[in-house]
């Protein structure tokens, strides 16, 4: 493992000032992406600033209209949360399907969302449920947060503190996992809630997570599987690699969106 200086921040202010003083500092959340990236020498920060010791960054608070999840909350805790399972079961299911059990015991919501891997699960939840990203300095709506591959609108040194998910009337998430990595080859979150119908796709887009307006418009008229049966998804902006071509990914978007709608309808009582 390459060399770096480790420090454990006691507060948000402490984390920020350590980052400012570092030649090239990086925040460390759950480390399930960052540590493998360091081993591969794809990044070489001078300093790692661990956020795990900061009080109040982990935890789940259920309100009347939304659930707020602390940035350092581990995937396993979101998946197991009685509140999340009751109020947004699609989100609990999504969290319970990330990586594998050991990764879910360490990986965090904030870490995943800040990293914005184009094949990660959580960006689909944030965008597809119309969540709000809370940071140490502002609130950012999901539609204004993601900014292309591994890029977000977070400023230098800005720290995600929590994410607020509005409670949908219904939602469904369906993932076609890559058989080896468990990342999303394609995955779709469909929801109908306070912000209308939202359909977000991860794993497929060349620019990362995106919404599908044609499917959203059809579902807004009629929230049924039938309403989106004829919709063709263009493959021009889809990723293409040895695992799945652009055309296949575009096809999967339609298939998984229909399955997600069916799931959302089946779970309406939630």
């Amino acid at each position: 493992m390459q060399d770096f200086k480790y420090s454990r921040a006691k507060s948000l202010a402490d984390a920020q000032s350590t980052l400012k003083g570092a030649a090239e500092g990086k925040y460390l959340a759950g480390g399930q992406t960052l540590l493998p990236v360091l081993k591969q020498r794809l990044a070489s920060p001078s300093d790692l600033i661990d956020l795990a010791g900061i009080a109040d960054l982990a935890g789940i608070k259920a309100g009347a209209q939304s659930i707020t999840i602390g940035a350092m909350t581990r995937h396993a805790d979101v998946a197991a949360s009685a509140d999340v399972r009751r109020l947004i079961p699609a989100l609990a299911e999504l969290a319970g399907g990330i990586g594998d059990p050991h990764v879910r015991n360490r990986g965090t919501l904030g870490g995943s969302v800040a990293n914005n891997d184009p094949a990660a699960d959580y960006p689909a939840a944030v965008l597809g449920l119309g969540a709000t990203v809370k940071t140490d300095r502002r609130s950012i709506a999901a539609d204004n947060f993601f900014d292309g591959l591994f890029t977000t609108k977070l400023a230098e040194g800005e720290i995600i503190t929590a994410i607020e998910f509005p409670r949908p009337n219904r939602a469904g998430y369906v993932k076609f996992p890559h058989p080896a990595s468990r990342y999303c080859l394609v995955a779709v979150m469909v929801s109908e809630g306070p912000q209308g119908v939202r359909v977000a796709v991860t794993g497929a887009g060349q620019q990362g997570v995106f919404r599908v307006s044609a499917i959203e418009a059809a579902l807004a008229k009629s929230f049924t599987v039938k309403a989106i049966e004829g919709i063709k998804i263009a493959d021009g902006d889809m990723m293409s690699d040895m695992h799945a071509g652009a055309e296949y990914r575009a096809h999967l978007v339609g298939v998984l969106a229909r399955r997600a709608v069916a799931k959302a309808l089946a779970g309406t009582s939630n």
């Binding site: 480790y6 454990r8 480390g31 399930q32 396993a76 050991h102 990764v103 360490r106």
Partner: peptide
């Protein structure tokens, strides 16, 4: 009490 991959966690953690 939780399973983790010990190659993906720092000793100092």
């Amino acid at each position: 009490g939780r399973s983790v991959k010990s190659c993906t966690m720092l000793a100092v953690q």
